[in-house]
């Protein structure tokens, strides 16, 4: 605990635009433990993807930095696998070949050809996509492609798994199924996960911590909510669990109040619960 696994310190991100510098992130500080499941939630355009890209090494912070296991992150690498917001599969490769590209790159030396093949099939089965192994991304639905993107990331055995709205494009049933798989996979492998989501239920169900970001520009961490729910978690029994409901309302309150007044987001405790039904719980604002 004295030495965090992943640490962001004073991260500021300014983009050069034709109209001058645009400060997207201002002084983001985060400490994440090994094996922790962290969700990033916030309104569209607040800078969630930017945070993720900085951890991935795809973007370089203008100020401050990011340290993983004692090493500063300056470049991308396969130990920080990314599930991209829109699957990012190579359209000319089949589902199998897409995963194979990653597996070959990471385990060329560690695995034999046969081992690699069964490892790829294992990962495709995890996301229920083994049946479409020989299809091209153009021949499968967006949700299926997204699942392959997840399989590709998992197949790299990353120590940190970075996911940009991985389930956003999925229907409710598939989403529930994948959330459950992700929970059990993550418990088995104990990898650190940072997941961006717009879905409050998803955030509470999956996360150990929810990082709520303030609206941009110059977004920062608004609230940092620890979710202390027993694992394994069951979505059906949790639905009426008072702690679960409380957490959900905390998140909704943050987002709801933020949406109304941009300035005053002091963590004032108002016991009166905001009357929301589950219908409103999923924010559908997306780019």
């Amino acid at each position: 605990m004295t030495k965090p696994h992943l640490e962001l310190t004073g991260v500021e991100m300014a983009f050069d635009t034709p109209k001058g510098s645009f400060v997207a992130l201002d002084n983001i500080n985060l400490k994440i433990k090994k094996g922790e499941f962290v969700s990033l939630i916030g309104h569209s355009g607040c800078g969630k993807s930017t945070v993720l890209n900085i951890v991935a090494g795809l973007l370089q912070a203008s100020k401050g930095g990011c340290i993983l296991d004692g090493h500063e992150i300056n470049a991308p690498g396969p130990e920080r696998a990314v599930v991209f917001q829109n699957h990012a599969l190579m359209p000319w490769l089949t589902v199998y070949e897409n995963v194979d590209l990653a597996v070959q790159q990471v385990f060329r030396k560690a695995m034999t050809k046969q081992e690699r093949r069964s490892w790829i099939h294992h990962n495709l089965e995890l996301v229920n996509m083994a049946h479409a192994a020989n299809k091209r991304p153009g021949e499968i639905s967006g949700g299926m492609a997204q699942r392959v993107g997840i399989a590709r990331a998992l197949a790299m055995k990353p120590s940190v798994l970075l996911m940009d709205e991985p389930f956003g494009a999925l229907d409710a049933l598939t989403r529930a199924h994948l959330q459950d798989s992700l929970m059990s996979i993550q418990q088995d492998l104990n990898n650190t996960v940072i997941m961006i989501t717009h879905d409050v239920d998803e955030a509470v169900l999956l996360s150990d911590r929810i990082i709520m970001m303030t609206n941009g520009p110059a977004a920062a961490v608004g609230e940092d909510l620890a979710i202390n729910l027993e694992r394994p978690r069951n979505r059906v029994t949790l639905a009426d669990d008072p702690t679960y409901v409380h957490y959900r309302q905390e998140v909704l309150k943050f987002l709801y109040e933020k949406q109304r007044k941009l300035e005053n987001i002091a963590p004032h405790r108002n016991k009166k619960a905001t009357g929301t039904t589950s219908k409103h719980s999923a924010l559908t604002a997306k780019t």
Partner: peptide, 29 residues
Amino acid sequence: VNPDLLNVSRVLQLSFWTHVRKVVLPSSI
């Protein structure tokens, strides 16, 4: 080439030649 695919290539740390052979060329064929 789609910037997302370039990012995949960077995350995988593909070497220059592999990058050209497996990402850039097929994409622009």
